[in-house]
Design a protein around this nucleic acid. Structure first.
Lengths: 222, 222
DNA sequence: CCCGTATGAATGAAAG
DNA sequence: CTTTCATTCATACGGG
């Protein structure tokens, strides 16, 4: 059969070696994809779900006319009226907005523009924090020539055992997929010769690999 | 060379058809990777290269030269991998981390970066608390009629204050695999959880494609 | 057009 | 566990 095929001229023949190369390439792609996905999940997992939350209200296709660039999150901006009310409430002494209050306030403010409880909550949080901060700073610059922060105290944090803080918490070639052992459907083939670059962007690394995907012919790697 | 191989009896032969399949698969992977990268770039577009938020210590000798102020990160930040694992554990239902578990988890996570038991503990505390709060909010503004109405303000910037909607991202997964032509059929296998979590939306699509790269194995025979 | 500042939002850690 | 604080990230906006 091999003979026939060969004579046939229309059959492609690959050596084990070539086959192996191909398989490797594929495995690499699989791994890369998997890792990209994992990476992505991690990055967007929490707050950043806003990253894609564009859409709905803000869709203004007209102004941008077919742009494909979706923006990041939008953030609430208090209207003058709302701000005024908030400020008033703030220095009205109610240092403790408390959940119930928040509701009321939100309800009140929503008559003057779009707003949510979270917005109110955050606003008070920030307002208080910054108010305090400003006070501290102005108080600090008394006999101190040091400008900037007041962070001097080696605040002891992390009471637990190992508090060896100083170290790179970079995640790198630490086999991303291992996080999910049951999803080990792709071969553990790891294009790990990338270790030359500690952190930087793993993306950029992938980028280079993606540059020439179709070179599965003579590349012998991994 | 061909002759040798042929005589060898171990030559793998592929038909044009099979060859084509392989090429497509690879092309698909290439495309997926590319798009993932693009997606990622878009989401993290500007500065968020924090993706590799290795912002950890930058205890460079230069900045400290003029002052005695040494700045180093003092707050733990989970690496993407760690976060991923934590998230998984979280919605895996184990509402009660329990002391012992914490240790295990910490141990596991420490392989992906600096971390302490306290960190893990806090993380779960916060995660739960915030999860609950979010739930409350979204539930609350449900039956309320206040908002919603006068939205379309001419103001160009106005946020979508309404609480963070759970998944729902509209990432157009147009024709990923059609690198060269009609997308090769890939099974809609989606083993991944991916549903309960906020993000993961757009990824899940890729997930299905990535599901069975092993398909190549079968291509090998003949 | 880029850059600095103000501020909304996210989140680790701690207090209650 | 719940609430609060502190710090940091990211973006809107105004000025040069």
């Amino acid at each position: 059969m091999d003979q026939d095929d060969r004579n046939n001229m229309f059959v492609k023949v690959m050596t084990d070696e070539q086959m192996e190369v191909l398989r490797k390439q594929i495995a690499i792609y699989a791994t890369i994809c998997q890792q990209l996905v994992d990476l992505h999940k991690s990055l967007t997992s929490n707050h950043d779900l806003a990253g894609v939350r564009l859409g709905n209200i803000y869709s203004d296709p007209l102004t941008t006319s077919g742009s494909h660039r979706f923006s990041g999150r939008q953030r609430w901006t208090p209207t003058p009226v709302q701000l005024q009310i908030l400020e008033r409430l703030f220095d009205q002494g109610n240092g403790t907005p408390s959940k119930q209050k928040i509701k009321e306030i939100t309800s009140e403010l929503s008559q003057h523009g779009q707003i949510s409880e979270t917005n109110v909550y955050n606003w008070f949080q920030n307002r208080r924090a910054r108010s305090k901060r400003k006070q501290q700073v102005s108080t600090t610059n008394n006999g101190e020539s040091e400008v900037e922060t007041e962070v001097e105290s080696p605040k002891p944090h992390q009471n637990s055992a190992s508090a060896v803080d100083e170290s790179n918490m970079c995640f790198q070639n630490s086999n991303v997929g291992s996080a999910d052992q049951r999803a080990k459907r792709v071969e553990p083939v790891c294009p790990s010769d990338a270790s030359s670059k500690p952190n930087a962007g793993q993306i950029s690394y992938y980028g280079t690999m993606l540059a020439n995907p179709s070179k599965f012919e003579s590349t012998r790697r991994v």
